[in-house]
Write a protein that binds this DNA or RNA. Structure first.
Lengths: 333, 333
DNA sequence: CCACAGCATGAAAACGTTGCCATCAGCCCC
DNA sequence: GGGGCTGATGGCAACGTTTTCATGCTGTGG
């Protein structure tokens, strides 16, 4: 910066003003400084400016993992929203050791980010409070916590709608394949199961749910089990597309026609759902990320309240993996 | 930090030494300072320390987009590798406007990151040179540029091996579906096509390749075209799994059995490839990211040369979408 | 018993910016 | 024509660290 000042023949203060776009600089001088900066291809160090302003120009994004397709979409949305506000995006993967190191890892954020966005972290109340200690605004995605900025979908209603779709087609023997890890039953897994159960209860039917590992294999195994039941289901709703894909695989291998003998439905609208012609509940991770990013920006700007809740829409995507059960003549009503 | 010093009853210097793990502090004092820091849940500001050391503790990751599954894997690997070295990961999406803003966006990195990792950016020589101006070490992934640290797979050989697999099964009418956007023919697209052509030439066969848009739809359309040829192919190799999935969809809709009538092969081992039982060429984006992250760390530490090349392995994953053509009795030899 | 080495510790400068205050010039109005 | 106002500009302290250098203390060898 000193070099630029010298090159333009002005003081440090003036260069700083120009580069910050602050007022109080003659247009002519402003231009000259701008040119000098460009010529020396100079950019301000966020480090130094952050030191004095207290703002870092960075937003931390915390996710349990980055591998699944879902997170790429969210990150893309976040990146676009934050980039538009000239904020940089710091990405942290806290991994499965969250219970032990989770809050420790949160600390490095302390004065190194202006805001924190969590992605599908499924934080407990206590963890939320611990993050509050970091002292920066926080936006949660994938979960809804009262009093805190959240961007989420209505998992409960999504699963209920999916179930109603199957019910309306005339199915009565409907099974649900859910997931949980040995130590973790995620909030969205809980909500989807609850939504399914509520819809079943609404139709006066007994729920029939299996819980397996949250991956394709879980779906494969669960479907195998369902196929060997005394009276197999005529429709299956999976907690998410990955499970549905596993189930689909078992069905294909067993020669069970979909939707001929069994209707299959997923949740999330995974990239590959269209390949399998899988009926599913669509949600857009990109839009979720975009909304969360914008919310973070607005909270920082003071134009949004730090307890804003944004519900993202879900929508049933009808493809060809669901149909009326054999022998039915249409809507059950 | 001052608070910690006061709390522990020592000077700022000592606190700094302890927190940096620098030698020259009595074990007893070290412990006391550590405890104070923990109690006040204090962490150093990377901003301030970077200001004086010149190191930012951050590595910038630049990708054209973050949406596709591939990038999530790379980011996960990078995050793990960088996190292990206590480096933070800054993620930038430069988008499709790369031609215009590409080098402009590179500038903000100037003194805000210790190293730059590009992911599948397919940089030209000139763009590389422009990035050199940033003045920090740079690691390229998804492309091989001599004289610069690169992590890549051998796309050419992967495609050649895939082609040989089909040849060995006895196929002779093999089509290749490649991709390009109106303005962009990526390096890996070029290499895979070249590898396929070389293998075909090695077998004394004429290549038969189509080029479409780089998505499922491109695959669907191309497959439609192939099916209406005078003599359709008995095997199809797609540049990547997304295209193969599109092709698979067309085949399914047309009632063409796979691999009964047509063998289909992809590239990349997409999450969903296993669902379709698609034979494909495996590469691990996670491992690529991990290797690139470690390489960046090593270059920063001075233990790796900044022109190191790392070739990641590819491997053919045999599933059930490829088989000998009808009427063949086995290996062609 | 003295000199000196070696180690633990503290003091202060420096890093690159911003923000406040002072200065200065030009202008308007009385 | 002078006083006060406005707007442009420069000087300087401060931000929170690291790093260098100085200082004091302890133990050791001559």
């Amino acid at each position: 910066m000193r070099d630029v000042a010298q090159h333009a023949g002005v003081s440090l203060s003036t260069v700083s003003r120009v580069l910050r776009g602050a007022p109080g600089v003659a247009p002519q001088v402003r231009q000259r400084v701008q040119d000098s900066a460009d010529e020396l291809s100079y950019v301000v160090s966020r480090n130094a400016s952050g030191l004095v302003t207290g703002r870092t120009g960075r937003v931390a994004v915390v996710a349990p993992t980055l591998r699944p397709w879902f997170f790429g979409g969210v990150l893309a949305g976040l990146g676009d929203a934050l980039g538009a506000a000239d904020l940089d995006m710091l990405v942290y993967q806290v991994g499965e050791v969250r219970s032990r190191r989770g809050w420790t890892r949160a600390l490095p954020l302390r004065r190194n980010a202006d805001a924190v966005v969590t992605v599908s972290m499924d934080l407990s109340e206590e963890e939320c409070r611990r993050l509050d200690d970091v002292g920066v605004p926080m936006v949660l995605t994938g979960q809804k916590v009262s009093g805190r900025a959240s961007v989420f979908i209505d998992d409960r209603e999504g699963a209920a709608a999916a179930t109603r779709h199957l019910l309306n087609l005339g199915h009565t023997r409907i099974a649900y394949i859910g997931s949980r890890t040995p130590e973790w039953f995620s909030g969205s897994a809980r909500d989807r199961l609850a939504g399914h159960r509520a819809a079943m209860a609404g139709a006066g039917l007994e729920p029939w749910s299996l819980v397996r590992s949250p991956d394709q294999e879980g779906g494969e195994l669960a479907m195998g089990e369902l196929l060997s039941a005394a009276e197999p289901p005529t429709a299956v709703l999976a907690e998410f597309d990955g499970i549905a894909m596993g189930a689909h695989r078992t069905l294909r291998r067993s020669g069970v026609p979909v939707p001929g003998a069994i209707s299959l439905m997923g949740f999330d609208n995974h990239d590959a759902a269209s390949v399998l012609d899988l009926t599913t509940v669509d949600q857009s991770p990109y839009d979720t990320g975009l909304a969360a990013g914008r919310l973070a920006v607005d909270i920082l700007a003071g134009t949004a309240r730090p307890d804003t809740h944004i519900e993202m829409p879900t929508q049933i995507i009808l493809r060809h993996s669901t149909a009326a059960p054999r022998g039915a003549r249409g809507l059950s009503s």
